[in-house]
Amino acid sequence: MLRDSLILARRSVVKMTRNPEQFIDVTLQPIILTVVFVFIFGGAIAGSTGAYVEFALPGIIVQTIMFTSLTIGVNLNTDIQKGIFDRFRSLPIARSAPLFGAVLGDIVRHSIAITVTLVFGAIIGFQFQTPWWHVAIAILLIITFAVSLCWVSVLIGMLARSAGAVQGLSFLIVFPLTFGSSTFVPASTLPTWLQGWVAINPVTHVIESMRGLLTGSTSVAGDTTTGQILWVIASCVVLVGVFFPPATWAYRRKI
């Protein structure tokens, strides 16, 4: 089962390097986002680009990961449509191997995106203010969140008729999650009606945890990083609790 999943994870990584769109998603896109936000909006929002890169980079990482974690549904849906699943299903492998292979492949994707963003951030002036193991926890935390969130995408991917529909539905979910958060501006500067949503949005807590772990500060006054991390872990548990059972049920129906 583990070996089969690894073989299939390798496949998914090889496919990603072949598919320019998906490769750009985890390499060029975070770089472009960083450039756009830091150099174009940075001065206006934070007064200086140097201060803004400290503020924005954790958010850019989270946003990139959010979008990447939703490609799994698109990919699984495409695999079923194109009949590759028929090949897998005629082979004596665990039924869950293609699914876990895809999740493992995604973890590789996330690692690439995080590395690219952190390295590029460091080049343009992001300074790590915390010990190395805080950075390690940050990476672990964001990947954990991505793997918890991917079940939403798996569920959509199993239920939607076409890969295009999966993409559309996924974006409907990701947009309010990422933009209704403190990704680009401190929560306190947002209109009050939005602040209510931002405060309960799990993505806000992921971003604040990342900020705390990478720069030692959070943009929400009076909140400790530990508190934020506990929030994130709680949302992971909820996401998995709510979406893992129906996602795997829908998957088993297909395979």
Partner: peptide, 27 residues
């Protein structure tokens, strides 16, 4: 069993060789 379905179930983003090696490994 070996199954050749009515519609080819090969992975278009892999080479012919990679397709077969993957199936071999899964076996």
């Amino acid at each position: 069993i070996g199954l050749t379905g009515q519609f080819a179930s090969v992975d278009e983003d892999l080479t012919g060789m990679q397709n077969l090696v993957m199936v071999g490994q899964l076996l």
